[in-house]
Simulated assay, not measured.
Amino acid sequence: MAVFTPVTLEDVGHWISQFPLGKAVALKGIASGIENSNFFLTTERGEYVLTIFENLTFQQLPFYLQLMRHLAEHGVLVPAPVANDKGELCVPLHGKPAAIVSKLEGKPQMAPQPVHCAAVGGMLARMHLAGQDFALKQPNLRALPWWREATAAVLPHIALEQAHLLHEEMKFQEALHASADYHALQRGPVHADLFRDNVMFDGERLTGFFDFYFAGCDTWLFDVAVTVNDWCIDLATGALDEARVRAMLDAYHAVRPFTAAEHSLWPAMLRAGALRFWLSRLYDLHLPRAAEMLTPHDPTHFERILRTRIAVPAPELY
């Protein structure tokens, strides 16, 4: 999250009249993240989050917003999108698509323990199962085709050692994604960005997943790998913390058992998750967009994780 499109309380004042939320009384930009313009919005009816979408189009957004509504209706803890008086979940603001969703209780847990990882693992499995009958389809827009484009874009900006690693890992992932085992993996809607700062806790109680705007249809195992690569590591080294990994995977497996194909491809998918975020951070660092509030993330963090996943065997799925 960031602020690329400045919005004032006065701007929102008339615009919000189409929603059943009363008057807007406070608006505050959210500085974290790097994709959309986000604001905490307080109205006469409560607290919400206003998002202006900087890259996603009006045609793409129904997938994300309807997915959140679908998951909420199936008991998954996610923000609920608010419809306007025409039943629309996405409407223009300053000429760009915008949406309002409910604000979750609590705060992100940035120093997770096994109990937090177990809660995330169990809810992630529930989310995957709940999404099985979601009618809309959209690919993960940051999957292999985007990795190819991003690789070509960042190669001129990185050192030879990094370029070698990137070439070799892309070769590995191209072969993996072409394999019969990969195509046998179970798939459906995934969050694809379930980092610590995209989950809310009240103490040890998980209150919800949010920021679904990287979601898409992909393998469930990729979603688990992305989540483990953030929640279950030592931040300084990138090494997996086995107690947290075990807590997350066991809780997930108890709700939606892992398959034999997932077991065999688990180490490779951890590498895929690390590659995806190394590439996006390289791209954001070397080809940045202007923003009023923006702090690019350090690419070396996921370079380190990727090198570690290649060198060190991963804990078993089950």
Rank of each mutant, 00 (worst) to 15 (best):
Y182G: 09
S32W: 11
L194D: 11
E88L: 13
L129N: 05
R205I: 11
T8P: 01
L141R: 13
E242P: 09
F214R: 10
I233Y: 01
V154Y: 12
L160A: 15
G203Y: 10
F172R: 15
L136Q: 08
M248Y: 09
V228M: 02
A225C: 10
Q59R: 11
L176D: 02
A247E: 02
A135Q: 13
H164E: 14
A153R: 09
F19N: 03
H301K: 12
A239I: 05
K171M: 13
F277W: 02
T151W: 12
H164L: 13
P79M: 09
A272G: 12
I52P: 00
L240K: 05
F134D: 07
P6G: 10
A80L: 14
H301G: 07
R69I: 07
D11T: 09
A254G: 02
D133W: 02
F58H: 10
Y182N: 11
D85H: 14
A268I: 01
P62K: 03
H74T: 09
F172T: 12
V3E: 06
R289W: 03
T295K: 14
Q173S: 09
Q138A: 12
L124C: 01
A215N: 03
L317W: 07
D193T: 04
G238I: 01
V3W: 05
M110Y: 11
A111T: 13
R187V: 07
Q113E: 15
